[in-house]
């Protein structure tokens, strides 16, 4: 991985020349894009059911994802 990162970063060196102050950066190909916000209301047609939301989790209990301790010794999920 170290050798790869060295090679990859070396490959990127040409980009370091692009520092001109009079060039604005382009962060997105659609310049005037704005967020599309839907109404702040339940949308059953596109919401996930609880079963679907938990169905791909490695571990769940009741209505929640189950995880090991977040602070220290707490036992496996």
């Amino acid at each position: 991985m170290t050798a790869y990162l060295n090679d990859a970063v070396a490959m990127l060196e040409p980009i370091l020349a692009y520092t001109a102050d009079d060039v604005e950066p382009t962060y997105h190909p659609i310049g005037d894009l704005s967020n599309v916000m839907r109404a702040d209301a339940p949308d059953p047609a596109h919401g996930l059911s609880l079963d679907a939301a938990l169905g791909n989790a490695g571990a769940s209990r009741d209505r929640s994802f189950r995880v090991p301790s977040i602070l220290g010794d707490g036992g496996a999920a």
Binding site: I15, L16, A17, Y18, T19, A20, V23, E24, P25, T26, Y27
Partner: peptide, 9 residues
């Protein structure tokens, strides 16, 4: 930042 300037060009 430089890459996004290159993107502009």
């Amino acid at each position: 930042f430089a890459a996004q300037k290159a993107r502009t060009l």
